[in-house]
Design a protein around this nucleic acid. Structure first.
Lengths: 228, 228
DNA sequence: ATGGCTTGTGCCACTGAGTGGCATTGTTGC
DNA sequence: GCAACAATGCCACTCAGTGGCACAAGCCAT
């Protein structure tokens, strides 16, 4: 695989660490998917990868963490891209959207997409997985906001109402991302087996969710005439 | 002894349960605030309230749960109010905002506000508390969406793009709520001691966050000329 | 290569959250 | 009062997560 060549320059130690890390992620997703998140103990996972539990906790912060790793990679790329983004005077939320799409484009293809799919399915069926994912997005959102207020000129006084708007813009991005993920995984449930949802599908679903944001503010509600 | 009126309203058993429940919440918030969430074991908390740990877990689902109880009450009231809301053809997000404000109005005054304040401070400093709160809001948001699509006519085909917009509208509400909470607790940090933030302040902060939602979509970003 | 030096790993014992089962106590209805 | 029943207390247990220390594997001289 390409990762072997890309990491060939790294010291042997680092490569070994990355290898066990990847083995832990893959095996965890496999075992959790097979027997459920609660149906697999850390001891079993560590036995399967032939690693001590102590080492596991040097690599990941929690049992949930190992199964959320694919998303971590994406958001780290997002923050990297954001750090180098050049605002052009357009709406902030469009900039954020494009930065996230660029980060998505950096992810290593369909293998990654499949891991994300497994991870999201676990999160959908396990409360602690879901909570961990939400908390991670929240933390990342705050980090993103820090970058935005540090690097961009939003035209208002610092700590004024524009700071609140910027924070909300980040929240909107995260909300759209979650809706995109959700419809994407729902599509996956429909197409069984062969036709797996691709990274491009995920990007499209996310774009659609972003496009639906303005409409979500104007959407009107009427009493349901259904009892007629 | 208890008055005939009180006995008539609720069986003794139920009252006892509610009393220990409230004692657990109050003592937990007190101890956690004093010594930190991780600095208090459940055994200590249970000793303080003179309740067995087994009973604790019959009342609350987790250690985090007991410290999030004040918010639970609010969102339960929100769902109740939503169940009886009559849409008037106005924007959905305004309806949701008003329903949440109405629920807020039902909360038992400043004592409740103080408990919320303690709870949020804990959540701000403890990752697992924060994650628990986010997961709870997410679950409640989904429940709210169910009510909306069941009771309201959104004018589109079921499961069409309007469903996505409705879900985003709920997400927007939750995001605005979180920002309102955040600015409210920040105000509390400024005014030390005597002048505690009130429930009315919280409602105002939430209103402001809701009002900032449209602007968060149009907020523009320019390169920071900050080195001037 | 062979020595020290650093760094990651394994092992062991431990804390603390959360659960299941069963006996006991207290409440309710007759 | 007495049977029926629910809530509680108690005990033992699983498992996630941590600290400490000994050991081994990679790194870097000479």
């Amino acid at each position: 695989m390409d990762t072997a060549r890309a990491t060939a320059q790294l010291p042997l130690r680092e490569r070994k660490k990355l290898r066990t890390r990847q083995a832990l992620v893959d095996t965890a997703l496999e075992l959790f998917t097979e027997r459920g998140f609660d149906g697999v103990t850390l001891d079993e996972l560590c036995d399967a990868v032939e690693v001590s539990k102590r080492t596991f906790f040097r690599t990941f912060t929690s049992k949930e963490d190992v199964a959320t790793a694919p998303l971590h990679d994406l958001w780290r790329a997002f923050l990297d891209e954001l750090e180098e983004a050049r605002p052009d005077g357009g709406p902030l939320h469009e900039l954020l959207r494009d930065v996230l799409l660029a980060a998505l484009d950096r992810m290593p293809g369909e293998e990654w997409a499949h891991r994300v799919l497994l991870s999201r399915r676990l999160a959908a069926h396990n409360p602690s997985m879901g909570a961990h994912g939400l908390a991670f997005c929240d933390r990342t959102g705050r980090a993103a906001l820090d970058v935005v207020v540090r690097r961009f000129d939003l035209g208002g006084t610092p700590d004024g109402p524009d700071h609140l708007r910027a924070h909300l813009a980040v929240d909107l991005l995260v909300a759209a991302w979650h809706r995109g993920l959700e419809t994407w995984t729902a599509e996956a449930a429909g197409t069984d087996g062969a036709a797996r949802p691709t990274r491009a599908d995920l990007a499209a679903a996310f774009r659609r969710a972003c496009a639906a944001l303005p409409g979500s503010l104007t959407l009107t509600a009427h009493p349901d005439p259904g009892c007629a």
